[in-house]
Simulated assay, not measured.
Amino acid sequence: MPQEVRAVIARAKGEPVETVTIVVPDPGPGEVVVEVQACGVCHTDLHYREGGISDDFPFLLGHEAAGVVESVGEGVTEVAPGDFVVLNWRAVCGRCRACTRGRPWYCFDTHNAKQRMTLTDGTELTPALGIGAFAEKTLVAAGQCTKVDPAASPAAAGLLGCGVMAGLGAAVNTGGVGRGDSVAVIGCGGVGCAAVAGAKLAGAGRIIAVDIDDDKLALARTLGATHTVNSRTQDPVEAVRELTGGHGADVVIEAVGRPETYQQAFYARDLAGTVVLVGVPTPEMKVELPLLDVFGRGGALKSSWYGDCLPSRDFPVLIDLHLQGRLPLDAFVTGTVGLDGVEEAFARMHRGDVLRTVVEL
């Protein structure tokens, strides 16, 4: 029977979010209802509120979540009621050209629940990234649920659902950081700090964190950075080269998404090195690089989609590493709020003094 639960929506562009009652339908074939325990407040949720993703208002916000499966629809075998799961926004299809070539982390036909959650008057809601987890319960596709060890705290585990996985995967999966490599990370917000943690996990020998904020650089040090560069006062390209014997880093991860920082990343890498773009640019941004430099420096210029992760493969392993004390997911949780605190969390995000505020239910 459909259920009424509390949730946070963005009703119109730029307006403050609202806590309202929504209707969650029973799960249909291939669908799951999850009782949400925690959900991180991500920049993407703010982009939805500001109309930067689409204009398909009203949006049901929240997507970086963990919780417990309450009920499943027909044909669901991946999870069962009572399972502790992390939600993801890339449920792979298993049939597209990427999946059939053995590269499901690039799946070109990811999917969500077919039914829509609604307001009590029947107005359909658009769930953020197909999840909508600023809610006591949410309806998702079964493939968006990954079962993990319930010993992990929901607040920490849920962060794998977006930002932490994006940054960590940019280092480990996309960048292929290996033992002894030198790595530079430009931009040390939540995603950049996760890239630092990923580089440490992969055994990098030198990890250089670059940002304009000393507090963020200090936090990057706690997560594994061996050196820091404040690019307000130092040329980041020259600083990275100086710290790598004059050569540049083997892997440079750009976690800002701006043309000027991408150019810094390009020139801060070693010959035949790798640049990974995980920061998200806006549509009007363009990069100009001399084509001879692109050719002459060799190596690889890559973009990282969600850390090129495969949730069913990566989430359980990363939770296990967290529980072993090798991946400090708890360090990314700056503070917690209830459902009524989302607007406050957006304000803190604007001030830049958090990695993640987490909504706990």
Rank of each mutant, 00 (worst) to 15 (best):
R348E: 06
G192E: 10
V287S: 07
L46S: 10
C193Q: 15
G158H: 08
C162I: 15
W105K: 11
G245F: 00
L292D: 10
G178C: 03
G161A: 14
P104H: 08
P29T: 11
P316R: 02
L361G: 05
Q324E: 15
G296D: 09
L292K: 12
G161M: 13
R326N: 11
V251L: 02
T77L: 14
K147L: 03
D56K: 15
A91G: 04
R97S: 12
G192R: 15
Y306V: 00
D214M: 14
T118A: 13
V68M: 10
Y267D: 10
H247T: 15
T19G: 10
L271H: 08
A220C: 13
V342N: 02
S231G: 04
G178H: 06
V252T: 14
V342C: 03
D55Y: 09
T21A: 09
G224T: 07
K302W: 02
A155L: 03
R313V: 10
L301N: 14
F295G: 12
L201S: 14
R179K: 05
G298C: 12
A194L: 08
L271G: 07
P58C: 06
G40L: 11
S71M: 09
K216Y: 04
N230D: 14
V172A: 07
G205C: 05
A272N: 15
Q3F: 07
S54T: 14
K286I: 12
K200I: 05
R348P: 00
E78F: 01
A151L: 03
S303W: 14
G198V: 06
V24Q: 00
I22T: 08
G169I: 03
V41T: 10
A66G: 05
D314C: 01
G203N: 12
G82H: 13
G158N: 08
G158T: 09
G67I: 04
G180C: 04
H247M: 15
S182M: 04
D45N: 10
A204E: 09
V317D: 11
E136D: 10
E124F: 01
L129K: 05
H47I: 09
I208C: 05
H47F: 06
E242V: 12
K302I: 07
A12P: 00
V33A: 13
R241G: 08
L168I: 10
A152R: 04
T126G: 01
G273L: 12
S303Y: 07
M285R: 13
D293G: 09
G158D: 09
